[in-house]
Design a protein around this nucleic acid. Sequence first.
DNA 1: TCACAGTGACTTTTT
DNA 2: GTCACTGTGA
Length: 732
Amino acid sequence: MADTLPPYLASLNPEQLAAVRHEGPSLLILAGAGSGKTRVITTKIAYLVRERGADPESILAVTFTNKAAREMRDRAAAIEPRCARAVMRTFHSFGAWFLRRNAAAAGLDPNFTIYDDDDQTTLLHGLLPQHTRSECKSMIQAISRAKDFGLEPDSPNLSAAFSDPQMRRIYRMYEDKLKATRNVDFGDLICLPARLLKGDEAVRRRTQQRFRMILVDEYQDSNVAQFELLRLLAGGGSRLCVVGDDDQSIYRFRGAEVRNILSFPEIFPGTEIVKLERNYRSYQSILDVAGNVVSRNSGRLGKTLIAERRGGAKPSLALLDDQDAEVAYCAKVCRERVKAGGKWSDVAILYRTNAQSLGFEKEFPRLGIPYRIVGSSRFYDREEVKDALAYMALLCNPRDEVSFKRVVNKPSRGVGDTSVEILLEAAASSALDLLSASAGTADSLKGKARSGLRGFLSLLSDISAALAAPEVDGETLAKVVERLVRSSGLVDYHREQDEVAGTQKASNLEELVNAASLYPRSPEGLASFLETIELDRSLSSEESSDADAVTLITMHNTKGLEFPVVIATGLEQGLFPRDDEEGEELEEQRRLFYVAVTRAKDELRLTSCHWRRLHGRLFETLPSRFLSEIDPALLATVAGRRKSAGTGASPYTAGSAYGGGVRGGRPVPSPEAAGGPWKAGLAVYHEDYGAGVVLKVSPTPSSGPLVVVRFETGRQAQFFPKFTRKLEPQRS
DNA sequence: TCACAGTGACTTTTT
DNA sequence: GTCACTGTGA
């Protein structure tokens, strides 16, 4: 009865509609790139409320990014306004929400502040002064990973997963300290709710009764701890619907567990699977390029995207000399787009590593190409901003040791390390918070330290009083934050730094003050400002996104986005993928390639440079093995032919002790030695392209020889014999 | 307490 | 090549 469906359902395709109307206990929606998964999930929420009489407050929808959560809320509410009452949050924001509501049961102060990895490192460094900061940083990474897997310091599996014998001891020490300062880290926002639900029957029952329907977006990026949390949330017979694409799982290095999605049907028996394979974004020719590469992966559920849009230009591959040529090529593509009536913002330039953006940043202003960089701004990670935030965090949680140490002497007031040690001791032995303990200990300090500390404390109580003062119309938190950054001396301190280093620190502080104007002037306003910043560092950089400019972005950051023109740059062996990536890691890189390519709506361009500067050194490279995994018939090669590696005199290899065999300082075997049976002039036969002759053979560090073949048809293509069986020497 | 130079490291990073 | 951390010396 399609004609009786309300319009918001009638416009769905049959698979999407089936997913929306599914009634069973668990549903896995395998949604390929561009198949309308956000639409399905938001429509499903609206459908449940509108058609199935679900109470919106019984619906929990979790995502991984704040942007996705906002989009979900807006789109669901646009169909059915009551949906706004559903709980739609990121995993971490849900965790914080849950912990603040159940703080007592969880053994937490409801005012806890959330530590980012920098704060975590500082906390641990304070415990392990004999270790360097970077050692502490890698220990924190290990601890965070352990939390991703839901492992506690006394979990038996901990030693199996982490080889460092000190791990258990350090992890325990860190946890104790974190508890003492009444802070939580990001991992805790997932682990602590899970632990509470597991251990507290009353909380568990109450929570399970509240959330009868749980939906998860980007499920392929969930980690083990998040999976555990979901299982507990849904354990009381709630319905669970997860949406994801195993081919887009690109955060394994951060603890994402692809097996969460691969084994979902086994863990939740009775799961129905709906596949969304119709792609509404790209042309088939683009999807084929992505599909060719990702289909080489072994661990996948397997699906094939079918484009709804027919036709379209053939994706192209530009083989370029070096980064300068790459920048020029990208500039040309951008200009052509604009000349043809498009906008700068139609084009996105994608790269794997942030460092690759530099070349574009340097040249684009000169070439007159407006650009914006997505992701790298890290406004809230900047020194001056973190300083101001530390003052605020301390007002919120006076036990926050990391924040205390950060600002008690910044700008310097004569309270040095020795004095700080005395104050920390006093707090530890008295069980008082740091500010109260400091107030009581100030007298035992001498001279500058004493007066400096008193100034610091009176500043904080001043601000505290200003926060709590009776409401005045039109006053926002900005007023207090401004007073804080001025009377603390932070503005003056950083303005001086600006003059020395030519930085913009003072104006960044101004921007922070502006951001605070969205919150009320009250202790609650401050707490909510801090939590928003802790959980969503993106807000301040978002304003520039409406300008007409080319987008520079890492491939990871493009997930969920789309652009008319996508240029995926740096498709070189050693960069993408790296030479040391094998097995699971290599498969993850293929998925990253898949994500990058499927962002393109109309036009896909790939670039690969012969020479690449990396860590200040110039390396001679070979095309990415991913390029050899694409059917050559799918790509139009647009730029000049790449010189083969190890041949010809180049300014970079000439004069080297290794002759032509050295590439950018890396000794490699000569082509002849590494070529195996392959050598120039050899007659070959290819399953798809027929007879041909080898033009060149170049060795690669990890992929075996790269063989360039010219076929009798005139086609020229390159292959890694290690990865294809289609090419073989011709039998005489 | 600060400023400077030497040393080494250096993918990706929703929260 | 760049940045951040470390240790030294004033």
